[in-house]
Design a protein around this nucleic acid. Structure first.
Lengths: 208, 208
DNA sequence: GTCTATACCCGGATAGAC
DNA sequence: GTCTATCCGGGTATAGAC
């Protein structure tokens, strides 16, 4: 919102530079708080305290707690999503998915937050509803394209429509992730690998 | 807690009868409130108001909001879980799963609540953590048995270990359900049927 | 534009009287 | 068992200082 002017260098960037920096700090603090205490558990007051700022200062930059949450999600997920898209384009679906899994296994709190918010945001009046809807739409689209490419190259044996397969893949990932979050004893990578083999065929799985 | 004396009939059963009845009323009220407003959105005060009772009266029977939630979940899920087990024993996995899906498609609010609480309860210190852990363990176990039976009878082509398949089935269900909750336009039954066919083989799918 | 202080209303939890 | 009263902490809205 305040980036339009900042994106035009040379005009004025003084007053906004501090603001965007402050916003980034708030997002970082919110990420750590939400990751530890969850969304419900984490309070704006605690986020502010971490920055030696006041509550209203936080509210000034993000009009509501949910707006801040969306910023956190966006920021946390964008890097991983980009890498995923890159992988899927060059190395095939299974490779991309498994790398995505491996990358995410180190930040269970973040996954917990994403899973929690996805469920919570399923209510159509939730502030993050549209964000998640769009996110799923995007992810499934990207995956569907990658699946189609793999089908054409003979890497994926399953001949079902790519979009349906993509939906199943996302579902599998969400579901296995949930089981793993509830019981960390489970081997998430192994489970995902086996499921991928069932869904895509053995040739789709990359070597160890 | 108050059942020990009640389990000895003939001595005194008057005072406790009213209590258990009251508890059932509270659970019913909580179910409707949680289903409409969600867990976070629903308040104990509103639950009490529906019964023309006060907040502390509710708290007296259920020491915390989360304890009440667990009672709600237990009560709401038991009937469906029993039917599922029955079906899987007699008609095969795919049939049981699809009937479970069809049965649940009429109560999206309840599914939303279950999905939300499953995610939230993944935190190990959550009041409902153990309940969900046990629920998943149980569901997967039942499914694994059914899968093994179907494999032996040649109804399921997939030769992977039954437990792994069962985990994938649960994950698929949770994941597709989530996508459907976020975007009700999707055809949950069709998606689940197609995924089942991929995972179990075409012979496992019952006719229309 | 940025930040602060204050106040409001609602949430869950607790103590004590009846 | 049920109530009233109270506490503390949460998100939010407003007024005002720099």
């Amino acid at each position: 919102m305040s980036d339009e002017t900042a994106s035009r260098p040379g005009t004025r960037r003084g007053p906004y530079a501090k603001s965007t920096r402050r916003q980034a700090e708030i997002v970082a603090s919110a990420t750590s708080v939400f990751s530890e205490r969850g969304y419900r558990g984490g309070s704006l007051r605690e986020i502010a305290k971490q920055l030696d700022a006041s509550l209203t200062s936080v509210v000034h930059h993000f009009p509501s707690k949910s707006a801040l949450l969306v910023a956190v999600l966006e920021n946390a997920d964008s890097a991983h999503a980009d890498a995923f898209q890159e992988d899927s384009r060059h190395q095939g679906v299974a490779y991309a998915v498994l790398r995505y899994v491996r990358r995410n296994i180190d930040r269970p709190e973040m996954l917990r937050l994403l899973a929690l918010m996805a469920a919570e945001s399923s209510a159509s009046d939730h502030p993050a509803h549209e964000w998640f809807r769009h996110r799923y739409e995007l992810t499934i689209g990207i995956l569907a394209n990658a699946v189609r490419r793999d089908q054409e190259e003979g890497r994926v044996a399953n001949t079902r429509d790519p979009r349906g397969i993509a939906e199943s893949l996302v579902a599998l990932w969400d579901g296995l992730q949930l089981q793993w979050l509830i019981d960390p004893q489970r081997d998430l990578v192994a489970a995902m690998t086996a499921a991928l083999k069932d869904l895509l065929g053995p040739k789709a799985i990359p070597g160890p």
